[in-house]
């Protein structure tokens, strides 16, 4: 085994970055990119789909094919990310954080747009890194679906969108202008990211939902199969603006902001303390004594 690919593929902290419980190597990055692009296409298919001949039988099948394929793609990413086997500490932390998020999710269910899970996903992604954030987004939505929210055709899409939220939080800059991003700068980054993530999450979930509720008979709102990309995009943005931006997405953004601002510093301290205690860094390797 060469030293360029140490056990854990980058688990030993490189170039000052803190250790990552779920490392993302080049192959995993390639896989994540491919599946993210494919997932984006599965969200955005209404915009790109060519016009359908009227005689085609399976014209309405697109969402159903994606409902089958997207979970498979997510599973493929999971296999690739955990290909070297997951550290027991990372596994236990993923499980516990998923349970906490699953417990937080119903708290906001009764109120319009109050989304109580993103802030913890964002903070955990920030502390534990992009790979962990991605897996946490998937596992927490899956666990909460099994526990409270229910499994349905929307779940794979929620999983992928939440995984992106966690992944993006892990990709926020660790250092800027030669100094680590901490303190109020970090909070500003996280809050800004939380707001952006809230609106983008609403946007892609709406995009997925749009063709299902479409058919109002209104030129201004309807999804037109095979319509021009920009026309459909404009109609979709109007639909989003009317149906969810004002209440749901803004509510989610406000919740994110408030929760990150109020609880963020404390949660970051707790999570970083857990990272320090878990000590993902050292990898014990036993090598036979050689006569060098």
């Amino acid at each position: 085994m060469s030293t360029a690919d140490p056990l854990g593929g980058g688990r030993s902290g490189r170039s000052g970055r803190s250790a990552r419980p779920i490392p993302v190597g080049p192959k995993s990055a390639l896989m994540l990119t491919l599946v993210s692009l494919a997932g984006l296409a599965m969200f955005a298919w209404p915009l790109f789909r060519p016009a359908q001949p009227a005689t085609v039988q399976h014209a309405g099948d697109a969402p159903f094919i994606f409902i089958v394929i997207l979970p498979l793609l997510i599973l493929l990413v999971m296999v690739q990310l955990t290909e070297r086997g997951m550290d027991a500490k990372a596994l236990a932390m993923l499980g516990v954080l998923s349970a906490v998020i699953a417990a937080l999710r119903p708290l906001g269910a009764g109120l319009n747009g109050v989304e109580t899970v993103f802030f913890l996903m964002i903070l955990a992604g920030r502390v534990f890194g992009p790979g962990f954030g991605f897996v946490l987004g998937c596992s927490s939505i899956f666990a909460s679906a099994l526990l409270t929210a229910g499994v349905g055709p929307w779940m794979p899409f929620q999983m992928l969108a939440s995984a992106w939220v966690g992944l993006g939080a892990g990709l926020l800059p660790e250092r800027m202008f030669g100094r680590p991003v901490r303190g109020w700068r970090e909070m500003a980054w996280l809050i800004a990211y939380g707001i952006v993530a809230a609106y983008l999450f609403g946007l892609v979930m709406n995009l997925w939902f749009w063709p299902y509720v479409s058919g109002f008979g209104q030129a201004g709102l309807d999804y037109v199969p095979g319509g021009a990309l920009l026309d459909n995009l404009r109609r979709f943005l109007v639909f989003t603006l009317v149906s969810s931006t004002a209440v749901w997405d803004t509510g989610r953004a406000i919740t994110d902001t408030v929760l990150i601002a109020v609880l963020g510093p404390g949660v970051l301290v707790i999570l970083r303390r857990a990272v320090r205690r878990a000590n993902f860094d050292p990898v014990v390797e036993f090598t036979p004594v050689t006569d060098e």
Binding site: L75, M78, T82, G85, M86, L91, A92, L94, G95, V96, S98, A99, A102, V135, C138, S139, S140, F142, A143, L146, L147
Partner: peptide, 11 residues
């Protein structure tokens, strides 16, 4: 691993 994470979460 993914299954084990979910089992831990459920437990």
């Amino acid at each position: 691993e993914f299954g084990a994470v979910l089992v831990v979460a459920l437990s």
